[in-house]
Design a protein around this nucleic acid. Structure first.
Lengths: 374, 374
DNA sequence: CATTAGCACTCTCGCTTCGCGAGTGCTAAT
DNA sequence: ATTAGCACTCGCGAAGCGAGAGTGCTAATG
């Protein structure tokens, strides 16, 4: 019964999605022919729509009132129908410029990425901080704050920094501190967590037993590394809730109990953004895959995500320092634009991190992205 | 006409507020007598309510359907009627415990304060990072990341740290870096921004002109200090949106167009939280005042804040390192609880910062707070 | 056989009406 | 000053209704 997926039907599906993404209202056959000057009548379009419905790509909220795409419809659109655009060079330039302004201040990169992502894709954005796949110690500095308190700055490979205050005995001189920090730095240089734990157990440096103070320092480093490994997974930045709220889905204009739902949906979404629940499972997947990950509505297991799509991409330096970032918004989403935005920012961040990680004389700006891979 | 504010009328006002805060629905005279076993009839209560209304403490949303407090009503309640409680020792202990767990990691204090504040007061929370009233340089460390890139860690008084990457020429040895950093550290030691700018202009150390590299470093420090002064004001942390969303104000249960408004209100609020607009003007005020600041509904100029109250307190080390924190939520708010929470967490943070700033052998935990000052 | 015109049918949306019930305001009695 | 009694006001939800939009189907057409 459900005839073949002809060329024209695909085109109609594409138009329905485009139109629905634009207007946020169910699209009628008549509207389509009028707006896109189709060389067929509305009745023909209706027939094709019926076929698309039977194929599972469209639905009927009510007998009257036009059609909207299903998750499967969006999926087919993303896989086969949409053109794989890139951001315009002008937009790319604008984005690069913003990153250029905070160059060097790496603790702001992730936040900035979220902000830009949200503004560009007009949706909420999420990102995890770049996480060292294998945290490796680099060096330790001790800075006296006053006689009884020092600030320990632990530096790890890839520019990761952890700071911590540390009570000290009043007698210590700055030179004392420097020497102790030097010993620990040398001892633990390039150590991974397991290696650091081994070294802490042995507690000697070049055969000489560590002083008590030095042992304290080593312990502190080990504890910090453990804490980092445990916590880094959890930390999810997000931004652009406001952008998402401006989507018509949350406008109470059309539909009365729609408004009632909207808040409930919003609360659910917020919960997800905050806790990372439901996003968490996606992240390893995104980390494993190379390209851009698109999860549409119900494809995500979590029930609360039924009406939302997530677009994720990995960024960072392969095998060393990686994170994920992406946008999240209603399934009715401008997929081409969102995908290119995510892709571009991921590549931008990757370049920035690579510059930090490898030996590039000066932070190079990435070329304009014209790749056509998803 | 609007008789005197008798003892009983004050009591009734207090009960109305308590009841309204509890139930979130307008409270009727009948309900009051029944629930609180008042020794008078509902008619008497009605008369008193009418008087309170004429005094501007209560309103009538509709002819039928009970009364709700006005901003002035809440104000009078906060000033004169409410008991000034403190958090229970158990709660205080729980909160202290959470801070204890991240002791040392000062970059997490503000976030934690927000989180705890939100959870305890069941509302959204805001906080600014502690801001040095006068940023003063302490020392600079340079850590080689690889041949062409170093990480500069600038330490300022009060444990403030700023990190930045820095391209370097390939030839430099770690000792080179250390020496240069040492020179700059000594040169700029304890310098304020203006002082640092002077020193940068002179560009000599002990009469010896600075090397080009050292000048670069000094410039970097100065730029960082400028950036910090400019930006620190803006940075507002917040948390607990979810908590606030759970308030009945945002539940679409009662009232249909209430739901429509709710989203609009929410959007406005979000905007305020994000931008700090409307919160900004309050902060200097809170910084100036010593105690807990309560801004109720329309008392705040911003129109979008008409339905919200803000409770702010300063925290930090007087004259050195201060910030503000507080909660924000619907005017229908449990003021006593919110105020004690804000007060307690502010004092807790102050103690923590003081421990960092002054020479306390070990971070002391503050005593149970039993002060009765607002 | 695909396409199309025509038309009946369905369903939502916005509007109005209406009764109910809660709660007040007022008046007169104590 | 307090209170009982009662009329009055409104908001709220249910129900009814007309209009309009858009479809599904059928029969005609090339």
């Amino acid at each position: 019964m459900s005839g073949p997926l002809t060329e024209r039907r695909q085109m109609i599906l594409k138009l329905v999605i485009q139109e629905f993404v634009d207007t946020a209202t169910p699209v009628a056959s008549e509207t389509l022919v009028r707006k896109y000057r189709l060389p067929v009548s509305s009745a023909t379009v209706r027939n094709d729509m019926a076929a698309l419905e039977e194929l599972g790509f469209l639905t009927h909220p009510h007998t009257s009132g036009g059609r909207i795409p299903t998750d499967a419809g969006y999926r087919f659109f993303v896989e086969n129908l949409m053109e794989r655009t890139s951001l315009s060079p002008a937009e790319q330039r604008m984005i690069r410029h913003q990153f250029y302004q905070v160059r060097g201040e790496l603790d702001q990169w992730v936040q900035l990425a979220c902000a830009v992502l949200a503004r560009t894709a007009h949706n909420a954005s999420v990102a995890t901080a770049p996480r060292a796949e294998q945290l490796r110690f680099k060096s330790l500095e001790l800075i006296a704050i006053h006689e009884t308190m020092a600030l320990a700055v632990m530096v790890f490979h890839g520019g990761i920094i952890k700071q911590q205050t540390l009570p000290i005995e009043p007698g210590r001189t700055p030179d004392d501190l420097r020497r102790a920090a030097g010993v620990v730095s040398d001892l633990l240089a390039d150590a991974t967590l397991t290696r650091a734990e081994e070294l802490a157990a042995v507690a000697t440096f070049n055969g000489v037993p560590l002083s008590e103070f030095e042992r304290t320092l080593v312990d502190m480093v080990v504890r910090a590394m453990i804490a980092f490994e445990e916590q880094a997974q959890e930390q999810i930045y997000s931004d652009g809730l406001l952008e998402m709220l401006s989507q018509p889905e949350f406008m109470p204009a059309s539909g009365r109990d729609d408004a009632e739902r909207a808040i409930e949906r919003l609360r659910r979404t917020l919960e997800i953004l905050k806790s990372g629940r439901g996003l968490g499972p996606l992240i390893p997947q995104a980390l494993a895959s190379g390209g851009v990950q698109v999860i549409i509505g119900g494809e995500h297991g979590e029930d609360a995500m039924r009406d939302y799509s997530v677009i994720l991409a990995r960024y960072g330096v392969e095998g060393a320092l990686v994170g994920v970032l992406g946008v999240i918004g209603p399934t009715r989403m401008a997929y081409p634009r969102s995908i290119s935005t995510v892709r571009y920012i991921a590549s931008l961040m990757s370049n920035l991190l690579a510059d930090l990680y490898y030996a590039n004389p000066r932070p190079s700006e990435p070329d304009v992205d014209t790749s056509a891979t998803l």
